[in-house]
């Protein structure tokens, strides 16, 4: 899932300080699962903002609404009849959701309440870890299911580097060395040949906005 972290309250307050009517838009998918931008978090943020603005004698009218997914038009529609009443939207979705919202309502400022952080896994309640940088060219088949782009601090394809330190990465003794793990796993699987081969320079495809159209589907004609 996509993991995001709520922005510091002061930053959010600053972003919306000029607006009197703000719609706080939550998203019920990834950011809800990682306890950042779902219905509950929308309520909390609303309460915090409300109190802070009252204290400053600058009250704000707030409404919260959470939809299933802000990255999906089908659900965004729910906002259509609502946005006319507000002078800003504060979105708690990931960067993609925020942009889709901004694209749909170009006349209204759409502001981010979260920092989108990574694509990761749920290690425990409230504990998430990054696992993929969406490089468009997955090599997990050769690296024992451990991503060298994400898990190696230098993103090496022919690791480890000389700094690998008794199983840990040179950057910290709390960070396992990805290439040490890759070696260990492939060794146990008897597949070390996967990494004795030289991996040539990558064709970085995540340099421009990417589009995916599944077989059998097509992009609708521009109107």
């Amino acid at each position: 899932m996509i993991v995001a972290e709520r922005k510091p309250f002061e930053e959010i307050k600053e972003l919306v300080k000029a607006y009197k009517k703000v719609l706080v838009a939550g998203c019920g998918t990834c950011v809800a699962v990682c306890l950042t931008g779902g219905e509950k978090e929308v309520d909390i943020l609303k309460t915090e903002l409300d109190m802070a603005r009252r204290m400053e004698n600058n009250p704000v009218e707030l409404r919260g609404h959470t939809i299933e997914r802000q990255c999906d038009r089908e659900y965004l529609e729910a906002f259509d009849s609502m946005v006319g009443d507000f002078d800003a939207i504060l979105s708690m979705a990931c960067g993609a959701g925020i942009q889709f919202l901004a694209e749909r309502f170009p006349q209204i400022p759409v502001l981010p309440a979260v920092n989108t952080t990574f694509i990761g896994v749920n290690q425990g309640i409230g504990w998430y870890e990054e696992r993929c940088r969406s490089c468009s060219n997955c090599v997990l088949g050769d690296t024992g299911g451990i991503c060298p782009v994400t898990m190696c601090a230098k993103g090496l394809y022919n690791g480890p580097c000389g700094g690998t330190n008794k199983g840990n990465c040179e950057i910290s003794s709390d960070q396992p060395c990805a290439w040490f793990m890759i070696y260990e796993r492939l060794e146990k699987q008897g597949r070390l040949d996967c990494i004795t081969r030289f991996t040539p320079a990558q064709n970085w495809e995540n340099q421009v906005p990417r589009t995916l159209i599944q077989p059998g589907y097509k992009k609708p004609e521009k109107q």
Partner: peptide
């Protein structure tokens, strides 16, 4: 490869690592 940028005097620089030492 080069030591990680975190160790130096610009720890928040973007590490390039477009290609690796090999």
């Amino acid at each position: 490869s080069g030591d990680h940028q975190k160790f130096g005097d610009h720890p928040t620089a973007k590490g390039v690592f477009d290609i690796d030492s090999m």
